[in-house]
Design a protein around this nucleic acid. Sequence first.
DNA 1: CTTGGAAAGTCAACAAGACTGACATAAATT
DNA 2: AATTTATGTCAGTCTTGTTGACTTTCCAAG
Lengths: 165, 165
Amino acid sequence: MQDRLQPGGENLLFLTDDQLLQGIELLFFAYRNFTSDPDRILENYTYGRAHHRAIHFIHRRPGTTVNALLDILGVTKQSLNRVLRQLIDDGLVESKVGVRDRRERHLYLTAAGQALESDLSSTQRKRLRAAYKEAGPDAVHGFRKVLENIMDPSMRQHVKKLVKD
Amino acid sequence: MQDRLQPGGENLLFLTDDQLLQGIELLFFAYRNFTSDPDRILENYTYGRAHHRAIHFIHRRPGTTVNALLDILGVTKQSLNRVLRQLIDDGLVESKVGVRDRRERHLYLTAAGQALESDLSSTQRKRLRAAYKEAGPDAVHGFRKVLENIMDPSMRQHVKKLVKD
DNA sequence: CTTGGAAAGTCAACAAGACTGACATAAATT
DNA sequence: AATTTATGTCAGTCTTGTTGACTTTCCAAG
């Protein structure tokens, strides 16, 4: 928009402090709206955003262990345990003792868990799909690139990429 | 990356559910890392993220009223009031009675408030600047475009744009 | 000029979800 | 046999959000 090419010079207007502050605000508002859809659904349950996060990552990484989940979510085990206990008690998550290492608990969504995941996820996918569609593939590529750069390098491995067979 | 042009067809691979789920995870991780820098600074104070948000928006919109801030932050006045009271008591924020409407309180950062704002902001600007720089202007444009599309239309007005004189 | 309502501030109680610290159990590893 | 690892649990604290009730200030309409 405002960052046109300077005549005969390099365009660095997108690095001004004002542009950066706008980016900070964009992230703040977009993220809040983005999480508001599932939050509304969760109001009908005794669950919150913490449950949503656990459900999302168990869905994406079925069979993941508690420790791996702790690593991804970056919370304490006490905090995660409270969430998992509720989800297991309510029959949304199944915890299976590891075969190779029986200390480990491998986590899976039950049918009910998958149903809730689908509900929560579909609102966010819908919002993101509309945003992607309107912006176009090039913009989406830029969006992903900048987000990846914002992330700590050590966390980038946690974004699960589709593996082509 | 994975979304190459299909031979003779339209490229809609960036709209697959898997791509969308990756986008959801990118947003989650990037946003968390993005807020972790100021969070670390705030640990040295009795402040949290709520104080940071108030400081940020008072900095960007000096003289804004409590009501306008409530609209932007989307919290209850009781919640905001607790935060503002601390910041005012600690001499980081100044509350001035409105001239035209003396019920209104206009909020400003004091010198100390500006100092903390600068500390908090600089960590995020640094992270974002590096991310922008590496991704390039086109990617930044796409990043902003998608974030704007993700936002509720009614919130877009709240992202303060630089006014060219 | 009175009064209704808006803006702001305050008090109290509560809940979610994060935290720390301490401790328990089972299983794998050394 | 001793130690480490993975997990689970209890207890208490903190931040930050919530609702509800109430007061003060003060603009503006009748």
